[in-house]
């Protein structure tokens, strides 16, 4: 017998979880969807950032969400450098299909193994003052450890949208996704714009990392489950559609949480990847995507 309160709570916490997935996917939506750089190391970078944030917080006592904002620019610069390397070795020679994929795959392994070697296989987490508190709206529970990261994620996504619409560089990023050569006519260097955008995608991974470490403990291999989730979300949304990515992430969180409530949490990875396979089969251009191949 299904308890309606249980279902409503599953949906609400699924939405909160969906906000975390949204910020985690948004970076990949920028790199994979807009720049056509298939960065499968994105979740590994997120895990790396959460280890860094956990380390900083345990030393300074700062809040992890705040620390994430402080760490994000550093990761952004790392991303710019990484794109320069990727462009030099792979994009320029047209080898990005196989060699570029192998490059990011190797990078993912390097990050994971280094974390295991340095920190061991243990889980890392951060104690926050609000971690144990819960806001109750009638029968619906809103744990603060889910609510605050969700709000932070939505705020950052909002800022990203405004930046892409209003600022000159932001509009250039949107333009480079559509027609790289057209930018040259405007005397804008598309490579520089792509480097900035890739930097932003990596900075978003750092912000997602701050949200992640508040929501759950993280270990070196936490990225694996996220690869499927965020690729599924980005593809489900239709590559490059950022509002679509937000909607798809929320939907995804709800479906996964309902599956966990109904059948047990052991099945939730299969839900994510099964949905990805289904989307690839039935509607590879995504729900919100146009005829993008």
């Amino acid at each position: 017998m299904l308890d309606p309160v249980l279902i409503v709570n599953a949906i609400v916490s699924g939405l909160l979880l969906g906000c975390l997935y949204a910020i985690a996917s948004m970076g990949l939506a920028v790199s994979f969807g807009m720049l056509d750089v298939v960065n499968i190391a994105h979740p590994a970078m997120m895990v790396l950032a959460s280890f860094v944030i956990a380390g900083l917080c345990s030393q300074s006592g700062l809040d992890p969400l705040l620390t994430a904002l402080l760490v994000a620019p550093a990761f952004g610069f790392l991303g710019v450098g990484l794109y320069r390397v990727y462009h030099h070795f792979f994009e320029q020679s047209g080898d990005e299909a196989m060699q570029g994929l192998a490059f990011f795959f190797g990078l993912m392994i390097l990050i994971e193994v280094s974390l295991v070697l340095i920190y061991g296989a243990d889980q890392r987490w951060v104690e926050t003052s609000y971690g144990g508190h819960t806001l109750s709206l009638g029968p619906v529970d809103l744990p603060l450890r889910m609510l605050l990261p969700a709000m932070m994620s939505l705020a950052c996504i909002g800022a990203l949208f405004v930046w892409l619409r209003r600022s000159f560089t932001g509009r250039a990023v949107a333009a480079v996704a559509q027609d790289r050569d057209a930018l040259r006519f405007l005397a804008i260097n598309p490579i520089r714009i792509k480097a900035v955008a890739f930097g932003i995608s990596v900075a978003l991974a750092a912000i997602a990392a701050g949200c992640l470490i508040v929501v759950q403990p993280v270990d070196a291999h936490s990225g694996h489950v996220f690869i499927g989730r965020i690729l599924a979300i980005v593809i489900l949304a239709g590559l490059g559609s950022l509002p679509g990515t937000l909607v798809a992430a929320l939907l995804f969180g709800v479906i996964e949480n309902l599956a966990a409530t109904l059948w047990g949490p052991a099945w939730s990875p299969a839900v994510a990847f099964g949905l990805l396979l289904a989307v690839l089969t039935v509607r590879p251009q995504g729900i919100f995507g146009g005829a993008h191949t």
Binding site: V38, L101, H224, G228, I235, P269, L276, L277, L280, P284
Partner: peptide, 13 residues
């Protein structure tokens, strides 16, 4: 690249 992603998810499923 979609084939690559699908095979990656196949392992998890």
């Amino acid at each position: 690249v979609y084939f690559s992603i699908a095979t990656l998810s196949l392992a998890v499923v």
